[in-house]
Design a protein around this nucleic acid. Structure first.
Lengths: 361, 361
DNA sequence: GTCGGCAACTAATGCGCTTTAGCATCGAGT
DNA sequence: ACTCGATGCTAAAGCGCATTAGTTGCCGAC
């Protein structure tokens, strides 16, 4: 078995450059105390040897682990089609790469396990900061991370209420999604198409954004004088999406438009509608929250709320970098997603009015 | 700004337990040299203090970084619906969790960047081993990792040819997918349904498994005396899947069955068929390689090749753990995925024979 | 009764790096 | 001429752990 090549250390560089180790350290970290000539020479030797600082040694001497963590708490069952995360992570990495930060990623079953991971990572000195996803109502994680002194960015934002721009915790930022604005744009869109009865097939009720969307639907509908709106919560799965669709369609006064909290359920809902002989968009309009290839592959294509998930991740990571640099925590609102109309919602004039039954009062 | 609580160290434990630091180290690492009583006492103190070994310190004293790496080389554009990876990673973590190993995850644009990441991780001492995905024809990565002395598991396996069980590199294992067996089962299934002209909408041509599948299709078809089979390669996107579908359907003698290398393209292909007025499965049978919610949400449901991706990831991680323990590299063949028939392929008797045109000669 | 040998520990070293303290050297100021 | 203060460097300590080389105390063997 061939031995692995030894990694070069600053000692090797020092020897080759004919200086002390500390001089090398100064030179490579842009610290004063070395002449420009020496600095340049050391740099060249380091380059030539392919030297990279050992993160372990750096971490040990107090520099931090050069790593941020991201834990995804999802039961394995729910990991279905999840285009969101990979794109988010991809964006995150773009921002992290500039600082050569690594991303420690873990999938766990639930939030309790997630908290354990945070504790362990903290004690093990593994991460400098965290990206927290799927914020929940009365979320215990920000408090925990604050007490551990780990900077973090809450991706998605916590509650709807405290949009004050002030930080509750000194080292925990929030990147909020504009759920209220997005929901308003959906409701407006549907209203203008003539819809008066709207159902919202939501995701997990404990998630903060589910609560925000549910709340915003009621607000937006109220502003337009609509009373026949309802939200039903699910676990985001196609099965529950289909079941919820059947439930709302079985209503005495069924909705003429359904808003789904993810693409998977929207597609499942479309299947249910087809199964029942309901024409989409003629008898039922469908809107999906979050676009993906699914929304484009169906017949008709599904009107969807499009956001640039990569950019979202990039902004979240950038916010974390700012925290790591010691800047104060911020609460920022992300840009509003755009509603992209497709075949599943169509102006009244173009829809099959002839049926008469298509739209509510 | 509140200071973060100090992490307990082995020194704290030593002080509280009234022994030396080395005794603590021995006690906690199950090394001889301490009495059972002392060992127990030290353990209790450690527990009480919530002590966890600092990975940085461990790594520095030669114990490895307690981390494995996984790099995904995909242009951001291609990160569409990718249920496979999250499930794979989820499985990987289950196996890693037992040893408290972390997973360093990175998304990059291409294989060149991937290799750079490997080099950097090696130099930075960040990982003990790697999981390599998307193995390619004439892949440079195994050679690189071997020269760096980093153990690795090639997920999916390299070439079809060298099924000799022997390892080319001493610390690089392969977990092969049984593409040949799976393709044979698909072809058999279609053959028994009466199909004689089969098209294969493949993925990226440079991927090893694409080559294996393409090759296996020819083999399996040849064994049954079928000559009218073809493979078309794509980038896995819905767009190219649809385009390839149109291309093969435009053929003078179009296929009566299409096998898609992923679920996204299969759904896109179904949409194309519907668009053209082709009945599925009457006029065209569709098989998807890899199941997901997509295949279940369409009408008809898509016959798919189902594999337990979580278990696959678990096996890969387990193979890596074995390597890290110093066991020799192995080349193992993973279990054959099961073909799950759904509405998109139906026995001849049940399909719309009346049309006559449904099946080829 | 002495000594080898073992059990149970402690002391000390090193991993690769950052950082503080220390040490020459040199030019400028008085 | 001698000091002062930069400047450019080296020596050494320390981060938290594993590990190797002692060090003690005790028991059995001779």
């Amino acid at each position: 078995m061939r031995r692995s090549a030894r990694r070069p250390t600053i000692k090797d560089i020092a020897r080759r450059a004919g200086v002390s180790q500390s001089a090398v350290s100064f030179a490579l970290n842009d610290r004063p105390g070395v002449s420009p000539a020496t600095r340049e020479r050391v740099r060249r030797v380091a380059e030539q040897l392919g030297w990279q600082p050992s993160t372990a040694a750096r971490a040990l001497s107090g520099e931090g682990a050069a790593t941020v963590g991201l834990v995804l708490a999802r039961p394995a069952r729910t990991l279905g089609v999840e285009s969101f995360f990979l794109r988010l992570v991809s964006g995150v990495q773009e921002a992290l790469a500039e600082r050569r930060l690594g991303l420690l990623f873990q999938v766990v079953e639930d939030v309790a396990a997630e908290c354990e991971v945070y504790r362990r990572w903290w004690a093990e000195h593994r991460v400098d900061g965290l990206l927290v996803v799927d914020p929940r109502h009365a979320d215990a994680r920000p408090g925990l991370l604050d007490s551990l002194g780990l900077p973090a960015v809450i991706i998605g934002g916590l509650e709807s209420g405290s949009a004050d721009g002030a930080a509750e915790y000194p080292a925990i930022s929030e990147l909020r999604t504009d759920d209220a604005g997005a929901m308003a744009s959906i409701v407006d869109h549907l209203y203008q198409l003539g819809h008066r009865r709207i159902a919202h097939i939501a995701g997990l009720p404990e998630l903060a954004h589910t609560r925000r969307r549910t709340h915003s639907l009621r607000e937006a509908a109220g502003a337009l004088g609509l009373t026949e709106v309802r939200s039903v919560s699910t676990d985001y799965s196609d099965a529950q999406g289909a079941a919820a669709t059947r439930a709302v369609l079985d209503d005495a006064r069924p909705p003429t438009a359904i808003v789904y909290d993810n693409d998977v359920m929207a597609v499942a809902g479309l299947a249910v509608a087809t199964e029942r002989g309901l024409a989409v968009p003629g008898d039922l309009a469908i809107v999906a929250w979050d676009d993906s290839v699914l929304c484009r592959s169906t017949h008709p294509g599904l009107t969807a709320l499009v956001r640039d998930t990569g950019a979202f991740g990039r902004r979240a990571a950038t916010a974390l970098l700012a925290l790591l640099d010691g800047e104060p925590a911020v609460h920022v609102l992300d840009e509003r997603p755009r509603l992209t109309p497709r075949g599943s919602t169509v102006p009244l004039a173009a829809s099959r009015q002839a049926h008469g039954k298509a739209l509510g009062s």
